[in-house]
């Protein structure tokens, strides 16, 4: 009985430790470019696509390159692993998840926030009359 209780306690403590450390480690926080560059940690940066700067798909390496301005107005070159995200042109804002490498932000994922495209759209109902 005693052995079992000790074993159980070890298992539970180990479980809690693994859980908590991983939870904290893998939670990627929202930050602006300045903070993300300063800490060098993985972060999520919200901002807007800068249309008149270089925006292209680098076919050789399969990377999408664009420029993004964060909420504080700082512009940064972003290199995304992969193709241009859906809804990129019409997005009201984009969120890039990744980290800095020098002055370039290497994103592993870019999410696009779109103007209401889902239900409750009275424009859509007018169109389909």
């Amino acid at each position: 009985m005693n052995g079992k209780v000790i074993l159980a306690i070890i298992v539970i403590v180990a479980g809690v430790v693994i859980g908590v450390t991983n939870f904290v480690e893998s939670n990627v926080e929202y930050a602006d470019f300045a903070t993300a560059q300063l800490t060098g940690k993985k972060a999520q940066v919200k901002g807007e696509w800068v249309q008149d700067q270089e925006t292209r798909f680098d076919a050789e390496n399969g990377k999408f390159i664009f420029h993004m301005k964060d909420d504080y107005g700082r512009m940064c070159r972003v290199i995304l692993d992969g193709a241009k995200p859906n809804n990129f042109e019409i997005a009201t804002s984009v969120v890039a998840k990744g980290k800095f490498d020098g002055d370039v932000f290497h994103a592993e994922m870019v999410l696009t926030k779109c103007p209401s495209k889902y239900e409750g759209d009275s424009e859509a109902v007018k169109k389909s009359l």
């Binding site: 693994i18 991983n22 939870f23 893998s26 939670n27 990627v28 929202y30």
Partner: peptide, 16 residues
């Protein structure tokens, strides 16, 4: 501030 966990969280916790 809402943020989601990375996929690595699930793998690291569930592998053991």
């Amino acid at each position: 501030k809402a943020s989601a966990v990375e996929i690595s969280y699930y793998i690291k916790t569930n592998l053991p």
